[in-house]
Design a protein around this nucleic acid. Structure first.
Length: 347
DNA sequence: AAATCGGGGTT
DNA sequence: AACCCAGATTT
């Protein structure tokens, strides 16, 4: 018997399960109710490599402040970056605004995955997801959940990069003509609530009888991925200028790490050993301690210093009230909390 | 194909 | 500490 025939009943079985167990989420509508492409798109961008609980309050804030794509398109970039602060992967926010402006200019979202794929910030997964969920296109949406679910269903043991391609082709074959969007969300819900990474709950899985990994007895061993390289440590210093209770913030260059975001003045972070502490200007600098922060491909150990200053530091910047400022990326919010004795402000 | 790009929850 | 999350873009 071929794999394909093994999965013959999968779409109907999965959709029947989804009808009873779909998660209720802010960007969803009741099953059968049309979805607003703007809200679908916004949620998909926010959810890239981001958990549902982390993204949800940002989705609420964005849709309340910018109810339509035209509203977002008209927003200053500074406002969008500030509203995105804390969500991470800030290129998403820059591309979000670019995309909103292109969509507003052309009078709406493209209705096909191929058209969506041309827009900034929309890759293969997101194009397929929006096309299926918002427009009913028979397109696949293969995310990390779907990778895991099918690695187990098929008991894939080969090189992960190759197996992902095979699995994606299998998913594409299985997308039903009816309810392709529900099919995409059902697979993600199954991965998020039952076929979980560490301890899948096969006892209540609607697909357990067609799962090869379950038949082998150890589904949690899948997917088989290559080992990850250890993160190096980088060291740096951050400088908190204070004046009448306010702090001096600068804007980072538009590209690269934390690109376009507000920040504390800080030199380049160096690997290996801590660089000498050379402040941007002479003052009575006081050491406040160290902040540790984990980025995607390195760990940062940031020494934080503060000093009172009577005048504006050199270069572009602004004075901000540390109690009110919510536009800082988390690493700088942590550093600032060290200076003010406050907590890291987040939604 | 590999590197870059955040932050936080789970185990 | 390791793993992962509704991945995309650049090198």
């Amino acid at each position: 018997m071929t794999r394909r025939s093994d999965f013959r009943e999968l779409p109907a079985r999965l959709l029947a399960w989804f009808d009873r167990h779909a998660r209720v989420l802010p960007w969803r509508a009741p099953i059968g109710v049309a979805r607003d492409p703007y809200r679908v798109w916004l949620a998909e961008i926010m959810l890239q490599q981001t958990t549902v609980p982390h993204a949800a309050p940002y989705f609420q804030a964005f849709t309340q402040r910018w109810p339509r794509v035209e509203d977002l398109a008209a927003a200053p970039e500074e406002d969008v970056m500030r509203a995105w602060a804390g969500l991470g992967y800030y290129a998403r926010a820059r591309n979000l605004l670019k995309c909103a402006r292109e969509v507003a200019a052309r009078g709406g979202f493209p209705g096909t995955s191929a058209g969506l794929r041309e827009l900034p910030g929309i890759g293969p997964y997101t194009a397929g997801a929006i096309a299926a969920i918002a427009f009913g296109e028979r397109s696949a949406a293969v995310d990390g959940n779907v990778d895991r679910v099918f690695a187990r269903l098929m008991a894939l043991k080969g090189e992960w990069a190759e197996e992902k391609k095979r699995l994606a082709a299998e998913v594409a074959r299985l997308v039903p003509d009816e309810r392709p969007g529900d099919f995409a969300e059902a697979l993600m819900d199954l991965g998020a609530t039952i076929c979980t990474p560490a301890a899948p709950n096969c006892m209540i899985c609607p697909l357990t009888d067609m799962c090869a990994a379950r038949a082998e007895g150890a589904p949690e061993r899948y997917p088989v991925k290559p080992p990850k390289v250890a993160k190096p440590v980088r060291y740096g210093h951050a400088w908190v200028y204070r004046r009448r209770g306010k702090v001096w913030l600068v804007r980072r260059p538009p590209e690269g790490l934390l690109g376009g975001m507000l920040a504390l003045p800080s030199a380049v972070w160096q690997e290996g050993e801590a660089p000498e502490a050379v402040p941007p200007s002479k003052a009575d600098w006081q050491a406040l301690g160290e902040v540790r922060h984990v980025f995607t491909h390195f760990t940062l150990r940031l020494s934080v210093w503060q000093a009172e200053t009577p005048r504006n530091p050199a270069g572009e910047g602004m004075w901000a009230d540390p109690e009110e400022e919510t536009g800082l990326p988390t690493v700088f919010a942590k550093a600032l909390a060290l200076a003010t004795g406050g907590k890291v402000r987040r939604r």
